[in-house]
Structure formats: structure tokens, C-alpha cells
């Protein structure tokens, strides 16, 4: 089973599969100077038969990483930590601006454009799923 994600990444480099979970469009916007934290985004689809529970994330090159949610309530931008995200079979969850995102904190080195940040998603059943996220310039029209 351990070979499956690796095999899937060789066949389809843009999408990783494990236990039926597919990751697409993983990216990290190039971070401005002076930051202690920035974000990563991607889309998750549960193509399997069982509900999966995402409970955490690890990022190579960062001391910590969290699942986070931004919201704009009454004109005030707020952020909160998300403990668990359930994805039902066939359902997709988008991590995008102004909503869910992976918060990358305390970088060991400053990420440069085209660098790869390896993200590992942790699930409640003990499964871990890795995906490379490319560091790229954020353009407004890609939102």
C-alpha cells in the first residue's frame, strides 16, 4: 500500500492519490519579506468510498503548520485554527483565499519562486499523504 502514492505520482505528477483522496493544484504563494507565517492552498477530493477526516498537516522547512480558516465577518478579517475537516465520498474541499488554507509558520529558510514545499496531510485513520506544493507569484486573476 505504501507504494501506491508513489506510483500514482509517477503516473500523474499533478495529482497524488492515497486511500482515495486526490490532491490538486497545491501551491504556495511567494511570501513577502518579514513574515513569520504564510499560506498554502490546494483542492482535496475524496474519490474513495469512506468519509475521510483530515486532522493535521506537516510542511517540510517549517517549524509548524496548521489547518486554518479565514473569514470576513462584519468587515473584520479573522482567522481560526481548524481541528478536523471531514470529506464525504465524492466531496471536494477547496483550500483557497479567504477560506480554508494551510498556515505555514516559522520558515527555516525563505522560500524562493519555483521552490517546492513538501506538504504531508495527516488523516484520523493514521494515513499520511504527501504532496509537493510549488512556490509561485500570486496573481489576482488566479484567485
Amino acid at each position: 500500500m505504501r507504494l501506491l502514492p508513489v506510483l500514482a505520482m509517477i503516473i500523474a505528477p499533478a495529482a497524488a492519490m492515497a486511500e482515495g483522496v486526490k490532491i490538486e493544484d497545491a501551491m504556495v504563494p511567494l511570501a513577502p519579506p518579514g513574515m513569520m507565517a504564510h499560506a498554502a492552498y490546494r483542492k482535496l477530493t475524496n474519490a474513495g468510498d469512506a468519509t475521510c477526516q483530515l486532522i493535521g498537516v506537516k510542511a517540510e522547512g517549517y517549524k509548524t503548520a496548521h489547518l486554518h480558516q479565514s473569514a470576513n465577518a462584519g468587515g473584520v478579517a479573522t482567522i481560526s485554527v481548524v481541528d478536523q475537516i471531514e470529506i464525504a465520498p465524492g466531496q471536494s474541499v477547496a483550500f483557497e483565499h479567504g477560506g480554508l488554507h494551510i498556515m505555514l509558520m516559522h520558515p527555516v529558510d525563505v522560500a524562493k519562486e519555483s521552490d517546492i514545499v513538501n506538504l504531508t496531510l495527516l488523516f484520523a485513520d493514521g494515513e499520511a499523504l504527501s504532496t509537493p506544493a510549488k512556490v509561485m507569484h500570486l496573481h489576482h486573476d488566479e484567485s
Binding site: 518579514g34 513574515m35 499560506a39 486554518h68 498556515m103 500570486l138 489576482h140
Partner: peptide, 17 residues
């Protein structure tokens, strides 16, 4: 604030546009 992970960079990207 500089370490704002999501909202500020996104707003600034939009302000640039």
C-alpha cells in the same frame, strides 16, 4: 500585519490589479 497569511497578501494582490 506582515505575518498575515491569507487576507493581507490577497488584498494587496488585488490592490495591485
Amino acid at each position: 500585519f506582515l505575518s498575515c497569511p491569507d487576507i493581507c497578501p490577497f488584498t494587496l494582490g488585488n490592490l495591485e490589479a
